[in-house]
Amino acid sequence: MLELRLVQGSLLKKVLDAIKDLVTDANFDCSESGFSLQAMDSSHVALVALLLRSDGFEHYRCDRNLSMGMNLTNMSKMLKCAGNDDIITIKADDGGDSVTFMFESPSQDKVSDFEMKLMDIDSEHLGIPETEYHAIVKMPSAEFARICRDLSTIGDTVVISVSKDGVKFSTSGDIGSANVVCRQNNSVDNKDNETVIEMNEPVSLTFALRYLNSFTKATTLSNTVTLSMSKELPVVVEYKIAEIGHIRFYLAPKIED
């Protein structure tokens, strides 16, 4: 038996909006520690890892570990029927073939339940080792989204370079080229507006902008984003989900053929 009550139901709606275009089908894993998902996009270039910790739910009951295969397009259709202020409860029976999403309006005068069929998904679970990153950049998520969107009108790939001077995003295409440099700044009034660069070693990596743009659909979840990079390794683009967890996107770099 599984019963997870999330008072801020809009978070789940936003999570689905953030990943449904990248991943079609995925297993949601439920354990004592939380509600999580790990899935690759269909071309196996990017990986998304979501964690909603059990202590972030108002009520969290998970009698035994459960993996529920869901079509994210269908799940998103159902969650769109929840109001933004609604409390969402996810319910499932052990070994059942469906999951129920219950939506309660804040004043409790409207209660809906939507039952969705589960599916068998054969997916490999990847072990992600803890890594010391050469450079970690924390910046406003809206700024990162703006840069990715702007640069994708010029080119298909972006070179992200972190040095002591700042973080540089560069692209080039048929019509020309562009560079955007963000320097470290400290905002006294608002930590969310800060760009903070922690660098052990300069690092420069090339990525497909199409994927980064897809990741920025998570911008509504957090005011800040963290980019963690090491030489020749995937970048981690992380959005914290207030008080409850995170969504991390891993993207493999492009290399010289």
């Binding site: 690759m40 270039v45 679970h125 072990g127 080792p129 995937p234 493999a252 770099p253 492009k254």
Partner: peptide, 14 residues
Amino acid sequence: KRGQQSISKFFRTQ
């Protein structure tokens, strides 16, 4: 030309 690597090559299958 740059080649796109697969993400699975970086992480072990569990």
